[in-house]
Amino acid sequence: MSIREFAAHLGISERMVSKWEAGSESIVPRPVNQSALDTSLAASGPEVQERFARKLDLTPSGFSPPQRTVVHPGTENGGPDAVLAGDETQIRHPIDGKLMTLADAGVFFAGEQNEPVYLAGFYIDVYPTTNTDYGRYVAATDAEPPEHWIDGRPPANQLDHPVVFVAWHDANAYSQWAGKALPTAHGWEKAARGTRGDIYPWGDQRTPAKCNCRES
Rank of each mutant, 00 (worst) to 15 (best):
E50Y: 01
A22D: 10
Q113M: 02
D87K: 09
R54S: 15
A167T: 13
L10D: 05
G86F: 09
A42C: 06
G197T: 05
A156I: 13
V17E: 00
P183S: 02
S216H: 10
I12H: 06
E14S: 15
E47V: 05
P66D: 08
D125E: 14
P66R: 10
D133Y: 13
A82Y: 05
I3S: 06
P73K: 00
S24I: 02
P155Q: 13
P128D: 08
P29G: 02
S61Y: 03
E189H: 05
G194F: 04
G23D: 08
L41Y: 05
E115L: 13
V32S: 03
D133T: 15
W168F: 14
G11F: 10
D133K: 14
P154T: 03
G111K: 05
L56G: 00
A42N: 06
L37S: 01
P31Q: 01
R193E: 00
R214P: 07
A22R: 07
V28W: 11
H161S: 15
Q158W: 14
C211R: 06
E215C: 09
E112H: 06
A103F: 04
P116R: 04
T207K: 00
S40L: 11
A120K: 14
R4A: 11
A53Y: 09
C213K: 07
W202M: 02
T141A: 14
W20I: 10
Y127M: 13
L99Y: 07
A209H: 05
E115Y: 10
E50D: 12
W149R: 07
L99H: 08
A140R: 03
A103K: 04
D81F: 10
A178S: 15
P201E: 01
V28T: 11
Q158S: 14
G74V: 05
W177P: 06
H186F: 06
A140Y: 03
S2W: 12
G203K: 02
A85D: 04
T184R: 02
P80V: 10
K55F: 04
P60Q: 11
H9F: 10
E115T: 15
T89H: 03
P162N: 12
L37W: 01
N33T: 07
N172H: 14
Y200H: 06
D142R: 06
N33G: 01
G11Q: 12
S64D: 15
I199M: 12
P183T: 00
G45Q: 10
L37R: 00
D57E: 13
V70L: 04
N212W: 10
L41D: 04
S35E: 07
P116D: 01
T141P: 14
V138A: 04
G78V: 05
S44T: 14
V17G: 00
G152S: 09
L58V: 11
V117H: 09
G97A: 03
L99Q: 12
R136C: 09
A181S: 13
I199G: 02
V71F: 07
V83I: 15
E76M: 09
S18I: 03
D170S: 06
S2M: 11
I12Q: 07
A36T: 01
H93D: 11
S13Q: 14
E88P: 03
K190A: 07
T132L: 13
A139V: 05
A178L: 11
A42V: 04
G197M: 07
E5D: 12
A110T: 00
Q67D: 15
E144C: 02
P65V: 07
S175C: 15
Q34P: 02
Y174M: 06
A103S: 06
G194M: 04
G194P: 06
S40Q: 07
S44D: 12
H169R: 13
G11K: 11
I27Y: 13
